[in-house]
Amino acid sequence: MESRNTQLAVGLFVIIGILALLFLGLRAANTSAVTTGETYRLYAKFDNIGGLKERSPVKVGGVVVGRVTKITLSGEYYEPLVEMTISATYDKFSDTSSVSILTSGLLGEQYIGLNPGFVDETVEMLQDGDQIYDTKSALVLEDLIGQFLFSQGND
């Protein structure tokens, strides 16, 4: 009888542990299947990636659809090449889509904003391994200030 109560208590203990894990997984972490389920990869070249890092989010209209998985320099001129892993749930982006590096808030993290392009019979859908050519680089504060001062000097 005593061992039955012990087993019951241990069983409850394990259940509490599983509940804690579920709480952490569902309530505290982003398990919304981005980069955990089926995915495909897209590439984009930028002039300047600013503060973008691996694991930075890729968003469409503020919704996370994927993550940056690799940043390398490529080509003759050493341009930053960003590899993005996108959830296969969103696999209907046309090749007229554009990406830009944005900042969340004034001091926030940088992320990639993906703007889906128009769709008609002349455009094709982006496939695994395709590259997006319409890119806008990160805004670098120092460059902005420099441009501002330069334009002031011209007046």
Partner: peptide, 15 residues
């Protein structure tokens, strides 16, 4: 509180 937490806590990396 919860959404910012969810945006920055990662299953594999953290938990």
């Amino acid at each position: 509180f919860w959404s910012v937490m969810q945006a920055s806590v990662d299953w594999g990396q953290d938990i």
